Amino acid sequence: MKIISIVAVGFILLLLLVMDKKQIQKLMERFSVFWFRLAFAFLILFAMNVAGGFIGLYVPVNIASGLLLAVLGIPGFATICAFALFL
């Protein structure tokens, strides 16, 4: 496990050395957009869980549903609503 983490960190550092400044900025912008979407997805999941609690629906707030909502957006929202309704 220790060797794998050292190799991964070395690989990432090597990639950063090979990339130019514009590519690094674009990569960091994509990471920041993804983390914002993930945080907003958890906010939406929490609101769905609170609102669903009033009518007896349970919406799971976990990393899988957060990633689903962050990556897919509105179709992910519909999927989570369908899971909460039919399961």
Rank of each mutant, 00 (worst) to 15 (best):
Lys2Glu: 09
Ile4Trp: 03
Ile4Tyr: 04
Ser5Tyr: 02
Ser5Ala: 07
Ser5Phe: 00
Ser5Pro: 01
Val7Pro: 00
Ala8Leu: 10
Phe11Ile: 06
Ile12Gln: 01
Ile12Val: 13
Ile12Lys: 02
Leu13Ala: 04
Leu14Ser: 03
Leu14His: 00
Leu15Asp: 00
Met19Thr: 00
Met19Phe: 05
Lys21Val: 08
Lys22Ile: 01
Gln23Gly: 08
Gln23Ile: 03
Gln23Val: 05
Gln23Pro: 02
Ile24Ser: 02
Ile24Glu: 02
Gln25Thr: 10
Leu27His: 04
Met28Trp: 12
Met28Cys: 11
Met28Gly: 03
Met28Ile: 13
Phe31Met: 14
Ser32Glu: 14
Ser32Gln: 13
Ser32Ala: 15
Val33Trp: 14
Val33Ile: 15
Val33Ala: 15
Val33Pro: 02
Val33Thr: 13
Phe34Trp: 15
Trp35Ala: 14
Phe36Ser: 14
Leu38Lys: 15
Ala39Ile: 11
Phe40Thr: 12
Ala41Gly: 12
Ala41His: 08
Leu45Asp: 09
Ala47Asn: 06
Ala47Pro: 01
Met48Pro: 03
Met48Phe: 11
Val50Arg: 10
Val50Met: 12
Ala51Thr: 09
Gly53Cys: 07
Gly53Gln: 05
Phe54Arg: 04
Ile55Phe: 06
Ile55Ser: 03
Ile55Tyr: 01
Gly56Pro: 07
Tyr58Ile: 03
Tyr58Cys: 02
Val59Cys: 06
Val59His: 06
Val59Ile: 14
Val61Gln: 04
Val61Asp: 02
Asn62Asp: 15
Asn62Glu: 07
Ile63Val: 14
Ala64Val: 14
Ala64Arg: 11
Ser65Thr: 15
Ser65Tyr: 11
Ser65Leu: 06
Gly66Lys: 05
Leu67Ala: 13
Leu67Ile: 14
Leu67Cys: 11
Leu68Lys: 12
Leu69Met: 08
Ala70Arg: 10
Ala70Thr: 06
Leu72Asp: 05
Ile74Ala: 12
Ile74Leu: 14
Ile74Asn: 05
Pro75Ile: 05
Pro75Phe: 07
Gly76Gln: 06
Phe77Lys: 06
Phe77Pro: 00
Ala78Lys: 10
Thr79Gln: 09
Ile80His: 05
Ile80Gln: 05
Ile80Ser: 01
Cys81Gly: 02
Cys81Ala: 14
Cys81Thr: 08
Ala84Pro: 08
Ala84His: 07
Leu85Glu: 00
Leu85Ser: 09
Phe86Ala: 01
